[in-house]
Design a protein around this nucleic acid. Structure first.
Lengths: 246, 246
DNA sequence: TGAGGTGAAATTGCATGCATTTTTCAATAT
DNA sequence: ATATTGAAAAATGCATGCAATTTCACCTCA
């Protein structure tokens, strides 16, 4: 299937090795590549990931492919069942709801801790970049704003100064990614997002932990509502968080 | 190394298959077995897990062993680096602290949600079992109380009715397990634990979410302090959570 | 037309083997 | 005595091959 002679394989391996000097082992690279395809929507929930195709695609044998899939399974990005192909995780509406709710709780924690712990530098950067993002809102630069938005939230997660919380929130965010695509396509979403960020930033600058938590919780709530959310392969899933703060 | 003829292998496989009917694939079984050894302290942080030994021990080839190790790595129970043996995760004091803090936050969330969402049955069971546990405190049955304690907390996690939060808290608990052994060996710890449980249960029965969260946060805080906590291979790590509720 | 059965092809699960990297340990130098 | 080096031993990374399971097209029969 991967029809190359031993000789050729060795040559290929040498070539690949050089590319990978700054990219870790084959498996790590594959995990990143596949995770990225899932998170960015190049692979959709429900899509099959068969080992032979992936092996051909990455020009490796099935062994590293299987290890990558196992890791992706542990990360929650793909579902695996014995003797079945791995599948991009497609969660039930109930589970999706639980992830959004958990995300709101986690963001609230990060916002609260950020309000209490961010360094002067972190606060300054947060506020500066936040204000700069207004330009993107005015020009309606959806793509750019989406990128900025990711940075903004990552700053919150880092600002909490808790590595384990950071891991959890990053993992939850990755698993949620396939289901929150195109959230900035909705009209007026950019401006609303900016305003919500503003409430969070203001509270953090005041070291108002409770206020920051409340604002962050509500922010995720509206993202949860605004997101183009699909439960099972294109089936729309209404999903509203309970109307409380933490 | 695994010196068996093909013939013998097939026979062994048949035998194993029967044992595994209710245990999933070889890899899944190994993941459970190894995770259990780590969580229960049969393997200590820093201990090496070499593939050949594990293969011999479970009487399989290295291929499934490698997959199991990769999954355990993704779960955070072992550390893996390229071309190195896997090692039972041994975290820094700082990271350990961040896990305990995260645990406190997660328990607080579960307690709050439990107070708001537990069914009548769940509340009744929680209270009944809690009261029954007083007997164990009086008789000083440490082992039994530890088992009950696990059940108690699992009930809280379930009572939150949020599957993703449940997953996160379960994973955090598993990763913390190697570092919190023997927490009930300290004199008076059983009685104190019971009292703290009592505050949580009382708040939940009153549907007092904030009170339950506060009580749960403090409970983890004292567990964090009381735990025999070791950062790097036997090095004691003082670890106190900040003196706040969520 | 559709439900159910059948066998070949496709796919997964695991064993084995080879190349490469790390580890070990003794010999030598400082 | 400690540090250094270098080659043998051991361990990991990945390719390949075979058995077992699943999938799917096709056929049969109601």
């Amino acid at each position: 299937m991967y029809a190359t002679t031993t000789m050729q394989n060795h040559l290929l391996k040498q070539v690949r090795r050089r590319e990978l000097i700054r990219a870790g082992t084959t498996v790590e690279q594959m995990v990143r590549a596949i995770a990225d395809m899932i998170v960015t929507g190049q692979m959709l929930p429900g899509e099959k990931l068969d080992e032979v195709s992936l092996a051909a695609r990455f020009d490796v044998s099935r062994t590293p492919v299987r290890e990558a899939l196992r890791e992706l399974g542990a990360m929650g990005l793909v579902d695996r069942e014995p003797n079945r192909s791995a599948v991009v995780t497609n969660v039930t509406e109930t589970y999706l709801h639980s992830m959004f709710e958990a995300m709101a709780e986690l963001e609230a924690i990060c916002a609260r801790l950020s309000a209490e712990r961010m360094t002067v530098d972190e606060r300054r950067t947060l506020e500066l970049e936040h204000k700069a993002s207004m330009r993107l809102v005015h020009t309606g630069a959806e793509e750019e704003y989406a990128a900025y938005n990711t940075e903004f939230h990552t700053r919150l997660y880092r600002g909490a100064h808790n590595d384990h919380v950071f891991e959890m929130v990053a993992q939850t965010r990755a698993r949620l990614a396939p289901f929150r695509r195109a959230q900035f396509r909705l009209p007026g979403r950019l401006a609303k997002s900016y305003e919500e960020h503003d409430r969070i930033v203001t509270a953090i600058m005041r070291a108002d932990g409770a206020g920051a938590a409340q604002a962050a919780y509500c922010h995720v709530e509206t993202v949860s509502d605004a997101s183009a959310v699909f439960a099972a392969a294109g089936e729309p899933a209404a999903s509203t968080l309970p109307p409380r703060g933490p």
